[in-house]
Lab assay of single mutants.
Amino acid sequence: MDVFMKGLSKAKEGVVAAAEKTKQGVAEAAGKTKEGVLYVGSKTKEGVVHGVATVAEKTKEQVTNVGGAVVTGVTAVAQKTVEGAGSIAAATGFVKKDQLGKNEEGAPQEGILEDMPVDPDNEAYEMPSEEGYQDYEPEA
Rank of each mutant, 00 (worst) to 15 (best):
Met1Leu: 00
Asp2Lys: 10
Val3Glu: 01
Val3Asp: 03
Val3Thr: 01
Phe4Gly: 00
Phe4Val: 02
Leu8Lys: 00
Ala11Met: 12
Ala11Pro: 00
Lys12Asp: 00
Gly14His: 13
Gly14Glu: 07
Val16His: 08
Val16Thr: 11
Glu20Tyr: 14
Lys21Phe: 07
Lys21Thr: 04
Gln24Trp: 04
Gln24Gly: 04
Gly25Gln: 15
Ala27Ile: 14
Ala30Met: 13
Ala30Ser: 10
Gly31Ala: 10
Thr33Glu: 00
Thr33Tyr: 03
Glu35Gln: 03
Glu35Gly: 03
Tyr39Val: 09
Gly41Lys: 02
Gly41Ser: 08
Ser42Ile: 04
Ser42Lys: 11
Thr44Ala: 03
Thr44Asp: 00
Lys45Phe: 07
Glu46His: 14
Val52Thr: 02
Val55Glu: 00
Ala56Pro: 01
Ala56Ser: 15
Ala56Glu: 01
Lys58His: 11
Gln62Ser: 13
Gln62Thr: 13
Val63Asn: 00
Val63Gln: 01
Thr64Trp: 08
Thr64Lys: 04
Thr64Asn: 06
Gly67Arg: 14
Gly68His: 10
Val70Ala: 04
Val70Gln: 00
Thr72Cys: 05
Thr72Ala: 10
Gly73Ala: 14
Gly73Leu: 09
Val74Tyr: 11
Val74Phe: 07
Val77His: 01
Ala78Cys: 15
Lys80His: 07
Thr81Cys: 07
Glu83Ala: 12
Gly84Leu: 13
Ala85Asp: 02
Gly86Arg: 13
Ala89Ser: 07
Thr92Phe: 12
Thr92Gln: 01
Thr92Glu: 03
Gly93Lys: 14
Val95Pro: 07
Lys96Cys: 06
Lys97Arg: 14
Lys97Glu: 02
Gln99Asp: 05
Gln99Leu: 12
Glu104Gln: 13
Gly106Val: 09
Ala107Thr: 14
Ala107Lys: 10
Gln109Ala: 01
Glu110Leu: 14
Ile112Asn: 05
Ile112His: 15
Leu113Val: 15
Glu114Val: 12
Pro117Tyr: 05
Pro117Thr: 04
Val118Leu: 12
Asp119Trp: 14
Pro120Trp: 08
Asn122Thr: 07
Asn122Tyr: 09
Ala124Pro: 02
Ala124Glu: 09
Ala124Gly: 07
Met127Ser: 09
Met127Asp: 04
Ser129Glu: 11
Glu131His: 15
Tyr133His: 10
Pro138Val: 10
Pro138Gln: 05
Glu139Val: 14
Glu139Pro: 06
